[in-house]
């Protein structure tokens, strides 16, 4: 059973992954330009598509985006092209467009965060912490182990109590009483468990000073290239946005998408940035196909 099977991109060094995702998310969030917004969303969607998308999630996401778009004009009444009048307030076209862009940006950020949480497993997070705070990392590691354990223990205790007739869900009051006693048992059980784990850690010297942190991550040339590119492109993009060269105005009238030397470069860089994970996976798949066809 492969425990970390989320593609080739997730196998990169945790530092690279954190730098990349931070760059792409910050850049997406800061944009109010439809080019950035769409590029960000498309990159995230393509990356997610590699691992299979359920029809249900597509429906939910589209619905969410539609709602965001349509709701914005109810709250923002700037803009000079009213489409409807509701309660005397204008439902303007500009606000609709702005809502649309916000929806795309939000959806993009959400999907990137999903990708981030899949790639950055807990041991990677602990590694990043462990470089500077090894003891905290150890405590965190032990704690994180408890979370799925609690859930399983809760279910086993419910079952055990049921089988001796001490768990009744005939009515609300009985059920609440039974659940409360299960929770108290769970709390005691978890404290006991934590005590044993702590003893085990203490027995192996966890209380000693000068602790180092072990990990299996190797920083390769690929990691260096991707980290550098992510840093450079996000800094450049942020500079372009803040200097106003790629500003897209919605109010009072929907403006044109800025097309000048600097903004074109920033568009290109952003598109490349958001496509990195997708291209990474595609490349890997193609290499496999090629190798297999040679057999």
């Amino acid at each position: 059973m492969n425990d970390n099977n989320y593609g080739a991109f997730s196998a990169l060094h945790p530092l690279t992954l954190s730098i990349y995702f931070m760059s792409v998310i910050v850049s997406t969030v800061m944009s109010s330009n439809p080019v950035y917004a769409c590029a960000g969303l498309i990159g995230a969607v393509l990356y997610k598509m590699i691992f299979g998308i359920k029809f249900r999630s597509v429906v939910i996401m589209t619905g969410f985006m539609t709602v965001l778009t349509l709701v914005n004009p109810f709250f923002s009444h700037y803009g000079n092209t009213p489409l409807l009048f509701i309660n005397g307030k204008a439902y303007t076209f500009e606000a609709l467009v702005y809502g649309g862009i916000t929806a795309v940006v939000t959806a993009g950020v959400l999907l990137w965060c999903q990708g981030l949480s899949k790639c950055m497993t807990s041991d990677k997070v602990i590694y990043l912490l462990g470089r500077t705070l090894p003891k905290t990392a150890l405590v965190l590691s032990g704690t994180l182990r408890f979370i799925p354990l609690c859930r399983e223990k809760f279910e086993s205790i419910c079952r055990a109590r049921k089988c001796i007739g001490r768990f009744s869900d005939d009515n609300v009051i009985d059920r609440t009483k039974s659940l409360l006693s299960v929770f108290s048992g769970l709390a005691g059980s978890m404290i006991e468990w934590a005590g044993d784990t702590a003893s085990s850690m203490k027995a192996r010297g966890a209380a000693l000073k000068s602790r180092t942190s072990f990990h299996l991550f190797i920083f390769t040339a690929r990691d260096l290239i991707i980290s550098l590119f992510s840093c450079v492109s996000s800094i450049f993009i942020i500079y372009v946005i803040t200097s106003g060269r790629a500003e897209f105005l919605c109010y009072p009238y929907v403006g044109n998408i800025p097309v000048n030397g600097l903004s074109l470069w920033s568009y290109a860089m952003f598109i490349v940035l958001s496509l990195i994970p997708f291209l990474f996976e595609i490349r890997e798949a193609m290499i496999w196909k090629l190798r297999l066809s040679k057999i």
């Binding site: 150890l138 590691s141 182990r145 966890a206």
Partner: peptide
């Protein structure tokens, strides 16, 4: 179960 303190065997 109770002795294991980390999430991966190597740690």
């Amino acid at each position: 179960d109770k002795q294991i303190a980390t999430q991966r065997v190597y740690s």
